[in-house]
Simulated assay, not measured.
Amino acid sequence: MPTILGPNQYGKAENRVVKITRDGATHHIKDLNVSVALSGDMAEVHYSGSNANVLPTDTTKNTVYAFAKEYGIDSAEQFGIHLARHFVTSQEPIHRARVRIEEYAWERIETSDADSRFVGADEAKHSFVRTGRETRLTQITYDGERWEVVSGLKDLAVMNSTDSEFWGYAKDGYTTLQEAYDRILATQVSGRWRFNWTDDEQRTPDWETSYEQTRKHMLQAFAETYSLSLQQTLYQMGARIIDHRSEIDEVRFSLPNKHHFLVDLEPFGLRNDNEVYLAADRPYGLIEATVLRDGCEARIPVDLTNL
């Protein structure tokens, strides 16, 4: 049976790069995991094994580290843009570059004045602890003409201990869940948002500010929504981002419902007044949806793991 080559790409995955910026005695850390995928005129390497159009994946790895020095890492987004532009414009056979970046947060360790007598004031400015914050994400795609920047986060754990209900749902012969009028609402947010940036220098977002503000609006919407369903909360989170961040046209969330069930304490002669819960890890409800700016089309994949 005749065969033809379908879509393909290659590159170097999970290049771990840590960039230290020294501002006198004060140091700043950018800790990234960078994956590069390239595609283009690559038929011959698949058909005949000719590597004439193949830029070695080792070279893509080296480029990541060289660019960390040459350009620095002001933001994950800007670093990814530098890389994607370089691969497409410097190698004729490469028509498209996709750069995925995970960023891990470090927090400066602060010392008291008393401690400074022993460790030194300067030392505190280059001591860090890995935080329990979420992982920041970005994906840059460039084909020589069009840019797409999708950023986001994963593993952001949030909880409301009240102001959440779930009742009035459809029931059938297999329904055993009791309606809840005061419940814990907890989830671990995986979210992506697509920027409307198109390489216009006058409209380039401040990527760092954009991330922090988007995260802030997401959390505020979660905290301020009196929730009758996790779907309602998801929509409010996305809508608030769209309303407050003009550089973003699309937001997609995947929210597992981290169920908390009231424990029956009556066998012990105790009343459980919404105080003691069993935190169940599986199975769990999974709520997913996209929120769009009016007039825009959805582009972020339904499966966020396949960005």
Rank of each mutant, 00 (worst) to 15 (best):
A157I: 06
W147Q: 06
V150A: 04
G144C: 07
D143C: 04
V150S: 05
F166G: 02
K154D: 13
V158R: 00
Q178G: 06
S164N: 05
K171Q: 15
I184C: 01
E165A: 14
T141F: 05
L153K: 10
E145H: 11
N160T: 10
L177E: 10
Y181L: 07
T162L: 03
Y142K: 02
I140D: 02
R146D: 15
D155H: 08
Y142N: 06
V150P: 03
T138E: 03
A170P: 01
G152Q: 08
L153A: 12
Q178R: 13
I140Y: 04
L156V: 02
E148G: 02
G144V: 09
S164Y: 00
A170V: 11
A157E: 10
W147T: 03
F166D: 00
S164F: 00
G173W: 10
E145V: 11
E145Q: 13
D163Y: 15
L153D: 06
G173I: 09
T138P: 05
E165Y: 10
M159P: 01
Y142W: 14
G168E: 12
D172K: 08
I140T: 06
L156C: 07
S164P: 01
T175C: 12
A180T: 12
Y169E: 10
G173V: 08
V158G: 00
Y142H: 02
A157N: 09
E179Q: 10
L156G: 03
G144Y: 03
E145T: 09
T138S: 09
G173N: 12
E148Y: 01
A170N: 07
F166M: 06
V158S: 00
W167D: 05
V149H: 05
V149W: 08
Y174K: 06
E148V: 10
I184K: 00
A157R: 11
R146E: 14
V149S: 02
L177M: 12
A170R: 08
G152W: 03
A157K: 14
V149M: 06
G173S: 11
K171M: 08
L177A: 12
Y174L: 13
G168T: 03
T176P: 03
A180Y: 07
G173A: 14
D163K: 13
T175Y: 11
Q178Y: 08
A180I: 13
I184P: 00
K171N: 12
Q178M: 09
W147N: 05
G144Q: 04
T175L: 10
T176E: 07
Q178T: 09
Y181P: 04
N160G: 08
D163M: 15
N160W: 02
Q178I: 11
T162E: 02
N160C: 11
M159K: 11
Y174F: 14
G173E: 13
D172G: 07
T175M: 11
N160H: 05
V149N: 05
D143I: 11
S161W: 00
L156A: 08
T162V: 04
G144D: 02
D163H: 11
W167Q: 05
V158A: 00
A157V: 14
W167N: 14
I184A: 00
G168N: 15
S164D: 07
G152M: 06
Y181Q: 04
Y169R: 14
W167I: 01
W147I: 07
Q178F: 06
T138C: 15
W147D: 07
E145F: 05
R146M: 09
A157L: 04
A180W: 04
S151E: 10
T141K: 06
A170C: 03
A170H: 09
D155W: 00
V158E: 01
